[in-house]
Nucleic acid binder design. Sequence first.
DNA 1: TGAAAAAGTAATGTCAGACATTTAAAGTTT
DNA 2: AAACTTTAAATGTCTGACATTACTTTTTCA
Lengths: 246, 246
Amino acid sequence: MKSNLVPSADLSAQIAANIRDAIVSGALIVDERLPSEAELSLKFDVSRATVREALKRLAAQSLIRTQRGATGGAFVNRISFEAAQAQQITTSTLLLSMNDVSFETACEARYALERACAPLSAERRKQPHINAMRDEIKVQGEADLTDEAFCASDVAFHRALVDGAGNPVLSYQLAGAVEAMQPLMNMITFTARSRDAIIALHVTIADAIEAGDGAAASAGLTALETETQALARRVFAQRSGSSAQV
Amino acid sequence: MKSNLVPSADLSAQIAANIRDAIVSGALIVDERLPSEAELSLKFDVSRATVREALKRLAAQSLIRTQRGATGGAFVNRISFEAAQAQQITTSTLLLSMNDVSFETACEARYALERACAPLSAERRKQPHINAMRDEIKVQGEADLTDEAFCASDVAFHRALVDGAGNPVLSYQLAGAVEAMQPLMNMITFTARSRDAIIALHVTIADAIEAGDGAAASAGLTALETETQALARRVFAQRSGSSAQV
DNA sequence: TGAAAAAGTAATGTCAGACATTTAAAGTTT
DNA sequence: AAACTTTAAATGTCTGACATTACTTTTTCA
């Protein structure tokens, strides 16, 4: 089988693209076994080392998995929400940290997306998610909590809110937005006073979800966004001011 | 430098994880050059082939790029929104097609996310995006349009809506949700009558955005979701009915 | 007879060394 | 000084070998 590959790229990249297309187009289906490395090297007329580099590229994207042994080989992988989510979080986190995305922009995106979940979460309110939110609120009130732990709990609270929408596609999409914010949030110092304000809004939101009031939950999220943005502005203004003196 | 690697995985995967951690943690910064393959093979005490497999894994995630030549090597890559978006679309598309995600669930997620953009798009309404939406509406009205072309135009319309929010993070996050729906939408046969209904709602939404009325735009999206879900139910019911007779 | 042990086999994982190709920098010539 | 040539260092690719794994088949022996 002759393969029409895009020139001017590494052979391993061309081969990876070729197989990737076959998977995306459905020519290769889930759990189907690819030809062995030796067969692929014949088919594409390259060495086994080059084929292996191509397969590792695909493995990095969770498109295939490999098994050793007599009946082993490379198999088309069923991408799990979990794996996709993990990749998305890594990518989103790096995207924000490497591209000078302002706190403001990232924060706006995050709360806009969360507001999209709020009505669904309120409509389908399930006890486990509400309990998770309440638990995190309790954690956030602990006096000796570090800023990092407070942020982690904040993320957990919001993930419970998102998961409460009961839509795995939505959860997957938002995981990146919520988690990627954490490094940015970690740059903020949370005073006792600002923590109290955030916790109060969390209570408002949890109450609204439990009451099935999506609009109130959305309003709570908007208030939380305003609060967070203001807090960030204060912290960054103070920091740039003090660093200017040094 | 001894490296504490997680055992029970391929060496190339361990090495890739090791370098990935260094990038994510910030120990390696953007555009920094990694040691040469020969140096890495010494550092990790593996062959050059194994190092190369690890580097190809990272390249597949756009974490590094490589350059040939005397001053070449592997460099930490600044992930672009474009590259991240392309990856996200691939992953999201496969996720939906491989995991038996119902049309209903995917559709719900998509419109929930779009509604999150609507208020921002309305607030920041810019002519280019509004023009793009109008153009797509015009395309959608063409009589001899195939279903696939209609879907493609639909996606373009919605991407213009999303981009209109003027938030690159939001655009990046939503690209996956919107584009991944396309294969599912392509399964639908669009009658002239259903096309008219969709186009009318597109006009409503574009008008609302142009008028700066976010609430109306959201309402239009909700109506469009209802319409789309109903259309899909009709198509799938008819299809399963006719196939049951065969 | 049947179950446990051993051997066979086919695949991926890893290594070593070689050569090809690319690219920038250094050196040389005009 | 500009143009050309050479050099060197890096990635890209190939070949062949051996190690490891895990399933299959065969053999052994109770």
